[in-house]
């Protein structure tokens, strides 16, 4: 595996091969983090590409004394995902639909692909995660999937350490609540 510091140095000096290596080294993790936060394949790809572009464009702003490269990269990814999420959450406004609402097509909100991609068992946990508020989802994904420390989660999410800790706990409590009742029995069977 190529040395990360060396690659960053080379890209800072303008070597595009180094940028490509950095990109290939991190694209899967950035993509997965985006997917964890947005829950949708197309959005995840858009956010991941944007985050990687931003990171590579602003490589001079990366300070290795302040954070690890992945933490910095995840910070950018989270911020891009928030932007995209905000955009998605805008109420749909359509004048054209309003003018001819008689023959406005029914919205097809669910992508069939998204359903078949995952197996049913973990869908339960996954769907519960999707119901969390964005900040709680960020916290739990960064903790469980990203295996970040609380300090790093606080840096990435831009909140105090205590807040990061309580968000993770709160997210867990919510998931627990959502899962008990509906799926406790299934989870128990799975555990045996």
């Amino acid at each position: 595996m190529p040395n990360l510091d060396r690659l960053i140095e080379r890209w800072c000096a303008g070597d595009e091969k180094a940028a490509e290596a950095l990109y290939n080294l991190h694209k899967t993790r950035v993509y997965r983090l985006s997917f964890g936060l947005l829950g949708n394949i197309e959005d995840a790809e858009e956010a991941a590409q944007d985050a990687l572009t931003y990171a590579l464009l602003h490589i001079h702003d990366f300070d290795p004394r302040r954070s690890k490269f992945t933490t910095w990269l995840h910070m950018i990814t989270v911020s891009r995902c928030r932007d995209l999420f905000r955009k998605k959450r805008l109420p749909t406004l359509s004048f054209s639909a309003w003018f001819n609402r008689d023959h406005a097509p029914a919205p097809s909100d669910l992508n069939p692909e998204q359903h078949t991609v995952r197996s049913e068992k973990r869908d339960m946990v996954w769907e519960a995660v999707q119901e969390l508020s964005p900040s709680l989802r960020e916290a739990i994904v960064l903790r469980h999937w990203g295996e970040h420390t609380y300090r790093e989660i606080a840096d990435i999410a831009g909140c105090p350490l205590r807040t990061a800790q309580s968000r993770v706990r709160l997210a867990y409590r919510h998931l627990e609540k959502l899962l008990t009742g509906v799926g406790q029995r299934q989870l128990a069977e799975e555990a045996i």
Partner: peptide, 19 residues
């Protein structure tokens, strides 16, 4: 269980060739 489910749910997706 939550941790494991979350991890597998996320890790089973991979970037498409377009990315």
């Amino acid at each position: 269980q939550i941790s494991g489910s979350l991890e597998t749910a996320i890790n089973e997706v991979s970037p498409s060739r377009k990315m």
